[in-house]
Design a protein around this nucleic acid. Structure first.
Lengths: 115, 115
DNA sequence: ATAAACCCTGACATTAATGTCAGGGTCAAG
DNA sequence: CTTGACCCTGACATTAATGTCAGGGTTTAT
């Protein structure tokens, strides 16, 4: 299929599909006219990419294990767990920071409303 | 005082002090040689700016009420509360999103460790 | 053969505060 | 009068994925 169809099937913009290819997350073969041609498997692959992006994993990190997880069960890919754990730590840090700010904001709001 | 001293006193980089001025958070008078000269009050003003930035408030928002809060008690400045409340909502949304991701991450980690 | 719909590359824009560099004045102490 | 420590402006870079535009080819249907 061509890029427009892949985009329509997955809901991912053409621009993003080209970007994924540049980041080595996705491959295509070129037809004589220069158009990209995708295998039917690409649709699932794009959904997988989107799933990991939704977890806040960067394209660079995804590139490091995507080849494996497309062929095996995720548990079999040793690169995945450390990345998940790193991301989890980052998220926890961010949550903590946001709570700090929230607490400060609530203090300020309270002190305004009291006066 | 000149910009280097203000920077040293507040711990805020010279670059940032110039940026605050450009964003109309800070003023200075120019000496004959073109150097900025700051009033002693600037030190406190810079700390106030830093405080609001630490709450995640943008320079544009700060600019909208800084004049007031420098002259009055914060509670007196009507622009402040809506901005606090808006920011609080943004923070809550972000916290919520992060929890969603965290929950997904924990699921994946668990499913890897179970296998 | 022409219009519409598709595809290509390359480039700039987006956010927000800050870092950093280049090229150039100013001033004080030696 | 020179050196070093200040100061100035203007500009580009940073992050990461995506949007958008220009300028140009291709294909399909009429």
């Amino acid at each position: 299929m061509r890029i427009g169809e892949l985009s329509a099937r997955t809901g991912v913009s053409i621009r993003s599909l080209r970007y994924y290819e540049q980041q080595k997350l996705l491959t295509s073969v070129r037809m004589d006219n220069g158009y990209r041609e995708y295998s039917p498997l690409a649709e699932d692959q794009v959904r997988t990419i989107q799933f990991y992006l939704g977890l806040g994993i960067t394209t660079e990190q995804i590139a490091s294990f995507l080849g494996c997880v497309l062929k095996n069960k995720e548990a079999f890919c040793q690169e995945v767990l450390p990345i998940y754990e790193l991301k989890l730590k980052e998220i926890d840090d961010q949550i903590h920071q946001l709570y700090q700010i929230k607490s400060n904001l609530l203090d300020r709001i309270r002190s305004i409303q009291e006066s």
